[in-house]
């Protein structure tokens, strides 16, 4: 029994708090990250910057393969292997240009992804699934009891501590892949990604669309930041309590999406014309001004990938490789 059980036993407080949790639960990860790193922080964590560390010297194909291997290993092994992989990858951010700052950003992003992942799993996990992980339901700790009509939204009647733990475990599948994908974007130029994708025979139009997205993401955050600030300048949140400020910030961010996207679409048209009038898609392939070779770091990375695959096999052989639901917390 938790000390706040009287709150969910009283229908009025139960309803009010449940709805607050419902809305804040969805918004909390976004608010947390906006509050801590801001929209400009997002911009920094999605933009390539020149650097001298070994990650910048590696072939983009190696980095892409590493992301794929990590995704596979995190998907087929026990949660703590995913957690260790996540930790390993985010430590690599320290080797980047302005590494401490980027490490802090990715740590916060990982933290909020864990909260978001947990929240999208925990309230919906049926007891039957939880029992596979935590076999004794009698030992479950009830954190909150939802009003009965929440069941229509797919909620379980109770939120337990075990469901939250299970949610955290699941989220480590996302975090390993997320941090590895951002690592690729932060250490590889769009031109090199283009060359790599062309080598892999991926259609140019598809590559170009992806890269326009990669190039545009930092700009999106910069424009959203301007739009949000302009709304506050025009009086948004005027005279309101500080506690509501995050809600207004979130509101401003959401309504800023339409003008930002429209603005970017206008620019995207210019980029498309510029590319097509410079021979883009003239042939199925492209030649390369510089050949992307493999260096010693690539070979080390191949070794790491090989070990990760062995690890995944061994984990499965020894019972640490089950997919949902997990065993072995």
């Amino acid at each position: 029994m938790v000390p706040w059980n009287f709150l969910y036993e009283n229908p009025l407080s139960q309803n009010i708090i449940s709805w607050v949790i419902f809305f804040y639960g969805v918004a909390l990860p976004i608010l947390l990250i906006l509050w801590i790193i801001g929209l400009k922080g997002f911009m920094e964590i999605t933009k390539y910057e020149k650097g001298k560390g070994f990650l910048y010297k590696m072939n983009p194909i190696t980095k892409l393969m590493l992301s794929v291997v990590l995704m596979g290993v995190a998907a087929v092994t026990v949660w703590w292997i995913g957690a260790i992989l996540t930790l390993g990858i985010i430590l690599l951010y320290l080797t980047m240009n302005d590494g401490v700052r980027k490490f802090l950003y990715i740590s916060l992003l990982t933290f909020t992804s864990i909260i978001g992942g947990m929240w999208s799993v925990a309230p919906f996990t049926p007891e039957a699934t939880l029992e596979l992980v935590f076999p004794d339901p009698a030992k479950y700790t009830t954190i909150w009891v939802w009003p009965s009509y929440f069941l229509f939204m797919g909620y379980e009647p109770q939120l337990t501590l075990q469901a939250l733990i299970y949610g955290i475990q699941i989220s480590f599948r996302i975090t390993a892949v997320l941090s590895a994908a951002l690592l690729l974007v932060l250490t590889t130029t769009t031109s090199d990604i283009f060359r790599m994708f062309t080598k892999l025979k991926i259609p140019q139009a598809m590559t170009f669309s992806v890269l326009v997205g990669v190039r545009t993401v930092p700009r999106i955050f910069s424009l959203l930041d301007t739009s949000v600030k302009m709304q506050f300048m025009r009086g948004l949140g005027y005279g309101k309590s500080r506690i509501l400020y995050p809600v207004y910030y979130l509101y401003a961010g959401i309504v800023a999406i339409v003008p930002t996207i429209v603005y970017l679409f206008r620019g995207a048209k210019t980029l498309a014309i510029s590319a097509d009038t410079r021979g883009f898609r003239a042939y199925p392939g492209r030649t390369e001004m510089k050949t992307l070779g493999f260096c010693k770091y690539d070979y080390v990375a191949f070794g790491v990938m090989f070990l990760l695959i062995i690890l995944a096999v061994l984990a499965n052989v020894y019972g640490f490789g089950r997919t949902i639901p997990y065993v072995g917390y």
Binding site: A282, R286, E288
Partner: peptide, 21 residues
């Protein structure tokens, strides 16, 4: 700003030539 796609100047200048093989 809108018509430049590549990260370095040399890559940008070479973009059309690479396209034309």
């Amino acid at each position: 700003e809108s018509q430049i796609f590549n990260y370095t100047v040399v890559d940008e200048v070479a973009f059309g030539l690479e396209n034309l093989m």
